[in-house]
Design a protein around this nucleic acid. Structure first.
Length: 779
DNA sequence: ACACCGTGTATTTTT
DNA sequence: TACACGGTGT
């Protein structure tokens, strides 16, 4: 192999600077469509080829399985192409098929497999399977390597049980959803229950900390972790065990992170611990043979509601870098050339995002022509909006033979908006796919079977036990189960232990005991084989033994037929997993299943795509429709009174615009059906922020000039002690300075973040944010 | 064990 | 509007 790989010549100067980076910290600020995946994959290849780094010593972290998979695939291709050229003197795809396979499997064995590429969660899970026995939390709780990973619904039911039954709290005052959210947030900040209590010293904080404690008890009792804990527990372990930290620190010489703007505190802690062996990053000097290389774009940070904090990216230069000004720094590279979109689209994006205050200075530089103008359509209502969009799709598809259905995307702020478009697309028989919705691993039948498997691997998993013990019905009722679980709780052992003692079962469950003992025998049988049989055989065995399939067959409905199909699909997934990873154990398959949500991420070039703006991040489409751009919907009303949240909405809009390659259509409606009733709508403030000369409209009023009815552009009054926002009710009468007397007809949202729909006698309804607009109540 | 009805609620969701 | 949930009735 030559010392200067020829693939470097495909790069622009800043990409090249990023790719050739060897040791020390580097922040790559990568604008939309600037080739950041290329920078990552080429750099990994360059580390291996030029610097002779052992793939085992490279850690590359992503947020999605899809991104991890793509990185692996692209690296594999790079190496395979290279070797094909060197050894055979021709490109990979010109080799005989069997030569190709041979070469690919060689590259897989020597490069891709030893590389540590994966999501934060899957990599942490992998490390924890090896190390978790060394961990003990502040209460002395322990976990074992066969721990279950609880999904969101397991977690919800555990928390609800604690709130309602253990702590006897009013679940209206402490909705499990919001308690869950608060706990998750605390975990992502790296807070223990005590730290949460210290950070939030009111009654609510104390209660949530109490739930958090009981919740950790629950997890430990089930030998289970939630998603947040996969990272948090690893961080705690690395902090409490110096040898373990030192071991992994010397393992990972080069750390690369994708979508760095989306990292949260614990993820940052994990990276920084591994990079510096626990030393303060600012004073860490031993970069001779190691690096931290992070790639991200603060302007595309749209997950702060999940505790992602783009300030971590903004602080990279202070934390790891030289902290010099942009022109002098050697620890930041900006990728600003955009290869995706036309100049008009990029200019609109640049102008919009410039309204944000918290940014790293950066512009998207066009590399293509000006392109068509952007078009903004004002519709009467959401049905007419759909007519417009679908009309355009039909017209463009007809006029341009090269355009396919798959070239179109309809992007919206909320899932509920998809309906009007679906109905219209159906009417014109245009094929479409709605991204999102019920995921494969969230289906009831799939979760049922996974619960069986989890119980087999981890008998302490009482949540799974409870799910399957009477599924299908075995005549084991609620009362018997309650009695057994209570006994288990009193003894402080998993429910399974109570069940596996024949005498106890007979005393506690006189009538149902036969059925219980039968169930126990069946599970035991498979437990004894869990280390010897492949996952597929255990799945098949459970499907037969449990009567699950038979029960579905007996139902003889279309729905049951579907469910059988999905269960078989799960079997196939296990088989495929075993083949792809050379590991057929049930333990590994389960770990994978818990963390794989995008089972069906098949790209489809034959259907129109519809999805939320969040789901669209990372994708691109020739023709994009960005719909429902109305004040209160986008930006969403919950963000209206919070400048930081409003900036995040603007970033979301930026993400939407930068998805478009050739054409961008914007639309909004005068009136929209919301929760059943028709409500008036006003154009989004974001529309008036776009450069007018780049946009064509259907009516002169499609984009109002700035300042009129733009409640959100009022001076940033931060958190007023607003008696104003609270206590509004439908039917209240009020006086508005400009509009006069009106009556509240609707309230959107809850707490401080609400919007009112107010009916004024001569002006009709208006949407008003009482946090921003002064309203006087009339008794 | 199941079906029915009233009630409350309603962004976004990589893992 | 539309759904998910909990309570009630059979």
């Amino acid at each position: 192999m030559t010392s200067t790989p020829d693939f470097l010549s495909h790069l622009n100067p800043s990409q090249r600077q990023a790719v050739e980076h060897f040791c020390g910290p580097l922040l790559v600020v990568a604008g939309a469509g600037s080739g950041k995946t290329r920078a990552l994959t080429y750099r990994i290849s360059n580390l291996v080829l030029t610097h002779r780094i052992n793939p085992e010593n490279i850690l590359a972290v992503t947020f999605t399985n899809k991104a991890a998979k793509e990185m692996k695939a692209r690296i594999e291709k790079l190496f395979a192409d290279r070797i094909a050229q060197e050894k055979h003197g021709k490109p990979l795809d010109l080799l005989a098929p069997y030569e190709q396979t041979k070469l690919r499997s060689h590259v897989y064995k020597t490069i891709t497999k030893p590389l540590w590429i994966g999501t934060f969660h899957s990599l942490c899970a992998r490390l924890l399977r090896m190390e978790i026995h060394k961990y003990q939390d502040e209460q002395g709780r322990k976990w074992e390597r066969n721990f279950s990973i609880f999904d969101e619904s397991d977690v919800q039911s555990l928390i609800k049980d604690i709130v309602v039954n253990k702590l006897n709290l009013d679940d209206r005052k402490f909705p499990p959803r919001s308690v869950r959210f608060a706990i998750s947030n605390a975990k992502n900040q790296g807070w223990s229950p005590d730290e949460l209590e210290a950070n939030q010293q009111d009654f609510r904080g104390r209660v949530i900390a109490e739930v958090y404690r009981a919740y950790q008890d629950g997890l430990a009792a089930n030998n289970a972790l939630d998603f947040d804990d996969l990272i948090r527990v690893l961080v705690l372990l690395l902090k409490q065990n110096e040898q373990t930290l030192a071991y992994w620190h010397q393992q990972f010489h080069h750390i690369l992170v994708d979508e760095y703007q989306d990292t949260n505190r614990t993820q940052y802690d994990m990276l920084s611990l591994l990079a510096t062996n626990g030393a303060d990053a600012k004073t860490f000097k031993s970069w001779q043979n190691r690096s931290v290389f992070v790639v991200g774009d603060a302007d595309q940070s749209i997950y702060s509601f999940r505790a992602a904090d783009f300030r971590i990216l903004m602080g990279f230069q202070q934390d790891f870098g030289d902290d010099l000004p942009d022109d002098d720094t050697r620890t930041m590279v900006k990728l600003e050339e955009n290869y995706r979109s036309t100049e008009n689209i990029l200019q609109a994006a640049n102008v919009l995002i410039d309204n944000n205050t918290e940014r790293i200075d950066k512009v998207l530089k066009p590399t293509r022509g000006k392109g068509e103008p952007i078009y903004c359509y004002r519709a009467d209502d959401e049905l007419q909006e759909a007519d417009f969009v679908v009309g355009q799709i039909r017209q463009l598809e007809q006029q341009h033979p090269e355009v396919q259905w798959g070239d179109f995307a309809i992007l919206y702020r909320t899932n509920a908006q998809s309906r009007a478009f679906e109905e219209t697309l159906v009417r014109w028989a245009i094929p479409y796919t709605v991204v999102g919705g019920l995921k494969f691993y969230d289906r009831r039948e799939v979760k049922d079977i996974l619960a069986y498997l989890r119980l087999i691997v981890n008998p302490a998993d009482s949540v799974s036990l409870k799910r399957v013990i009477n599924t299908p019905r075995r005549g084991i009722g609620k009362t018997t189960m309650d009695r057994l679980t209570q006994a288990a709780q009193e003894l402080g052992v998993p429910t399974w232990e109570i069940l596996s003692d024949e005498a106890t079962v007979k005393t506690l469950a006189s009538r149902g005991s036969r059925n219980i003992l039968g169930f126990v025998d069946m599970i035991r049988l498979w437990q004894s084989q869990v280390d010897t049989l492949p996952a597929t055989e255990i799945i098949q065995g459970i499907l037969d033994n449990s009567g699950y399939i038979r029960n579905l067959q007996d139902q003889d409905t279309d729905e049951a037929e579907d469910r059988i199909g999905n269960v078989k699909e799960l079997y196939n997934a296990a088989q495929q997993f075993a083949e792809e990873n050379g590991d057929d154990s049930l333990l590994s398959f389960l770990a994978n299943a818990a963390l794989a949500s995008d089972a069906d991420d098949k790209e489809d070039s034959t259907t129109v795509s519809m999805m939320t703006l969040h789901s669209a991040k990372g994708l691109e489409f020739p023709i994009v429709f960005l719909v429902g751009i109305e004040q209160g919907l986008f930006p969403n009303f919950r963000s209206l009174d919070d400048p930081a949240a409003l900036e995040e909405e603007r970033r979301l809009c930026y993400v939407g615009i930068t998805r478009a390659q050739e054409r961008l259509f914007l639309s909004h409606a005068r009136e929209r059906r919301l929760y059943g009733s028709r409500e008036p709508a006003i154009p989004s403030a974001f529309l008036s922020e776009l450069p007018r000369d780049l946009i064509e409209t259907n009516t002169p009023t499609a984009i109002p000039s700035q300042g009129i009815e733009m409640f959100s552009s009022a001076p940033p009054q931060k958190k007023l002690p607003n008696t104003n926002a609270r206590d509004w009710a439908v039917g209240d009468r009020l006086v508005h300075k400009g509009y006069g007397l009106g009556e509240v007809t609707h309230i959107f949202g809850a707490g401080n973040k609400i919007c009112l729909a107010v009916k004024f006698p001569n002006l009709g309804k208006k949407i008003i944010d009482p946090n921003i607009t002064v309203l006087e109540r009339v008794e």
